[in-house]
Write a protein that binds this DNA or RNA. Structure first.
Lengths: 214, 214
DNA sequence: ATACTAAAAGGTGTTTTTCCTGTTTTTTTT
DNA sequence: AAAAAAAACAGGAAAAACACCTTTTAGTAT
């Protein structure tokens, strides 16, 4: 089974080139390409059963740029890995993308084998960082942060967002058409996963990781 | 038949650029442009048979600014749709325009297709809202964080920050060298002040207003 | 069909929160 | 110093949150 990839870039030529490249990789195949973030939203919403494992996002796009696109994907599909693509190496851009939730950054002129290596690393380790990027991160947010990526179930995410509202668990259960006991289960499992004591910890985590936006 | 648009902006260059842009759209044409609100009043009165469907209003103008202009149009020509244009994204401005009766808000550096999409949406659905604006509206309507500012006591602030940690109230009391019952008092008074139901609402408020930074 | 597995739901009991009702203590004002 | 105001504190009831452990259900693989 191959991991699915989506390419987002307004330059048709380039996105097609990448598509061709990725499709030659053993473990990866391109699901579709988008010209901008809006198109990503449309496609994601249109086929919720077919969400890619990895999204390659160009930083500079009209309509909805890479940063916004990244933020939206992170907020709505936290399990998707995002790799930023750009021609420019402007430090600010890289940082913004990473802050937005991208887990790696790749220059567009990267060689084929570099891209494949990056994709593999993302799947295996959950991140891909060139040394350059690592240094940038250390310099900027010297606040260490061992933010390991957690895999959430669809319902856990839905629950987490509702838990950030002032609803009681009983009310959340009603909204999700589930038993309060199931909600208890989601809560308990999230508490364990995220290593928090109570709902406050959950809410802070959700906001910090852009799963819920106040 | 095309929908008629009027552009109101004191920057001739920009209003002409917008005019050119709009005139390339299939379903829209620019009737005329105005430099300020006063001119709008004159033109509207001079040709009452020729009132536009949509008015694009710049927020910052001399003589009669965007908010006043919007109010006048809404009061005298309720069928006209108003879309606000601005360079600044200051939250207060957006809200004021929307309260004045604008049904949408667009940044001036918006791309051509965004403008067209906005215009179409206005004609079809009667409104155009970016997500950002929607959130602002929801907040203001629910009286969450609209315009009333809250005065916090020093201890209330200290407590609020601790309430964003995972401590129980008892533990917070110990940290502040106060009785748990006093903490109860802080909490209850904050709940009332901020109109929230529970600690979750408090935490979200604190983060949103940068009283606590995760 | 059977066994396995993950999600959903249930049972039971403890702790914490929330929301009332107050009273006492401290600080400020007159 | 007395009066007024603000802050701290209290008791107790009810609701909600939390923890832990078991059972049912539904889907999948064998």
């Amino acid at each position: 089974m191959k991991y699915s990839v989506v390419v987002v870039d307004d330059h048709t030529l380039l996105s097609q080139a990448i598509e061709g490249m990725v499709n030659t990789f053993d473990k990866f195949k391109v699901l579709y390409t988008c010209k901008n973030g809006g198109e990503v939203q449309d496609k994601f919403k249109a086929s919720p059963r077919n969400i890619p494992d990895i999204v390659l996002v160009d930083v500079n796009m009209p309509v909805m740029n890479g940063i916004e696109t990244t933020q939206w994907i992170v907020a709505n599909y936290p399990n998707v890995h995002i790799l930023a693509l750009s021609v420019e190496d402007a430090d600010g851009t890289i940082l913004k993308m990473l802050k937005a939730g991208a887990i790696g950054y790749l220059l567009k002129d990267a060689q084929k084998d570099v891209l494949e290596k990056a994709l593999l690393e993302i799947i295996e380790n959950g991140f891909y960082h060139t040394k350059n990027v690592t240094n940038l991160l250390l310099d900027s947010v010297s606040g260490k942060n061992g933010n390991k990526r957690v895999n959430f179930k669809e319902n856990e995410l839905k629950f987490m967002r509702l838990a950030c509202s002032e609803l009681t668990y009983k009310e959340i259960a009603e909204k999700m058409f589930l038993s309060p006991k199931t909600i208890d289960g989601y809560r308990d499992s999230l508490f364990t996963k995220l290593d928090v004591r109570n709902r406050v910890g959950l809410v802070v985590y959700a906001i910090k990781n852009k799963i819920y936006t106040p």
